[in-house]
């Protein structure tokens, strides 16, 4: 049975344009920050090996374009996700208000088997800016929203300074792993098929 377990964990990072999705991903995977990141067009991902209890997993972290207009691409990129990270900028109310849209849009497009219990993690980024003086969304407000949405784990980070990024992604990886394993228990018969031949019935083939 253990050999059957999935070793790829897919994580999707969502959030408004410019909240720091690409930076968070690069800080976690490459331990680097750059002011020169361009706006993400389409999607890209980075992978990182993670270890849990003597087992190795590949964390595949997807970075997507932040503008709402590109949301229709989500269908292609969100499928098979094990965890979704919602990012906002603590210095932007709008980006926080939009978390709900991102969450709902994700559930519609990824269409997970158990949407009620699908793992999300929320990250409030850019806490370093202006020493926190330009902050407009309080931690309390953010935590309240997370609690109301089914106790979503919450982290405050600075991708620039590398603050709390590792911690956030450890939780992300753990939740993704749990989600993947629950899915195995939940749909024991379909896992083998999915792993071996990837048949997909999109209704437009054959």
């Amino acid at each position: 049975m253990p050999s059957r377990r999935r070793t790829l964990l897919k994580v999707i990072i969502l959030g408004d344009s410019g909240v720091g999705k690409t930076s968070l991903m690069n800080q976690y995977v490459n331990k680097k920050f750059s002011n020169q990141y361009k706006a993400t067009i389409g999607a890209d991902f980075l992978t990182k090996e993670v270890q849990f209890e003597d087992r190795l997993f590949t964390l595949q972290i997807w970075d997507t374009a932040g503008q709402e207009r590109f949301q229709s691409l989500g269908v292609a990129f969100y499928r098979g996700a094990d965890c979704c990270v919602l990012v906002y900028d603590v210095n932007s109310v709008k980006s926080f208000d939009n978390l709900n849209n991102w969450r709902e849009e994700f559930l519609i497009q990824a269409n997970p088997s158990d949407p009620e219990n699908f793992p999300f993690v929320v990250i409030g980024n850019k806490i370093d800016i202006d020493g926190g003086n330009s902050r407009v969304v309080s931690e309390k407000k953010a935590r309240a929203w997370c609690a109301a949405k089914g106790n979503i784990p919450y982290f405050e980070t600075s991708a620039k300074e590398g603050i709390n990024v590792e911690e956030a992604f450890q939780t992300i990886a753990k939740d993704a792993l749990k989600s993947g394993e629950e899915e195995e228990l939940y749909l024991p018969d379909t896992i083998d098929v999915g792993n071996s031949s990837q048949p997909r019935s999109t209704g437009c083939e054959c």
Binding site: S17, G18, N35, Q36, Y37, A39, Q67
Partner: peptide
């Protein structure tokens, strides 16, 4: 405001090299 914000976010990361 939103449009302006979006544009400002993007121009500062367009071909700055």
């Amino acid at each position: 405001r939103e449009r302006k914000g979006l544009i400002e976010k993007d121009v500062v990361r367009t071909d700055r090299s």
